[in-house]
């Protein structure tokens, strides 16, 4: 099986990789680029654990082929903190105990950041509907919603 050569930007850095035609961006991130923070919960776009942004757009990386991201800019959970400084969402998730097992957390953080970029002052209902594509089986979402709203408050003050 021949592989394709792809060049893309991941978390601000230019990367090159080889991938088979049918391999998803998620597989590439995890197995070729060793960025295992993006998780596979379903492989069918139903759980949101593999959420990344591609050219700023929130996407399930399991639904995109690796060969499709040529020339595109991808942001993953590994690029969310500014160096050693956590993003307000990351900090608020810790303060609010908004994670239990943590496997859905990277995807939810990426999705929540995407929400706050578009809507810095969401209502609770808007948060719940925006995150409806991200499953969490541990928390019942209560503390996740609180953390996102609190992070939004803090980010509006900055």
């Amino acid at each position: 099986m021949s592989k394709h050569h792809v060049t893309a930007t991941v978390n601000g850095d230019v990367v090159e990789f080889l991938c088979e035609t049918h391999r998803s961006l998620l597989d590439v991130l995890r197995d070729e680029l060793n960025l295992t923070g993006t998780k596979e919960g379903c492989g069918t776009g139903d759980c949101g654990a593999c959420s990344v942004t591609i050219d700023g757009r929130l996407t399930c990386s399991c639904l995109v082929l690796g060969v499709e991201v040529e020339g595109k800019a991808i942001e993953t959970i590994e690029g969310m903190a500014a160096g050693a400084v956590l993003h307000p969402l990351q900090r608020k998730f810790l303060e609010h105990a908004a994670l239990q097992c943590g496997i859905c957390t990277p995807g939810i953080l990426i999705a929540a950041r995407s929400l706050l970029e578009r809507n810095p002052d969401p209502t609770e209902e808007e948060v719940r509907y925006w995150l409806a594509g991200n499953l969490c089986r541990c928390t019942g979402y209560h503390k996740i919603v609180d953390a996102v709203l609190d992070a939004a408050r803090e980010m509006r003050r900055q």
């Binding site: 295992t36 923070g37 993006t38 590994e78 969310m80 956590l86 994670l99 943590g102 957390t105």
Partner: peptide
Amino acid sequence: TRPIRPDGVPKVTGLARYGAD
């Protein structure tokens, strides 16, 4: 009290290693 969990940071930065990692 309600301190920050000690294993929290790797879980919000994607560095925690689960079974498939």
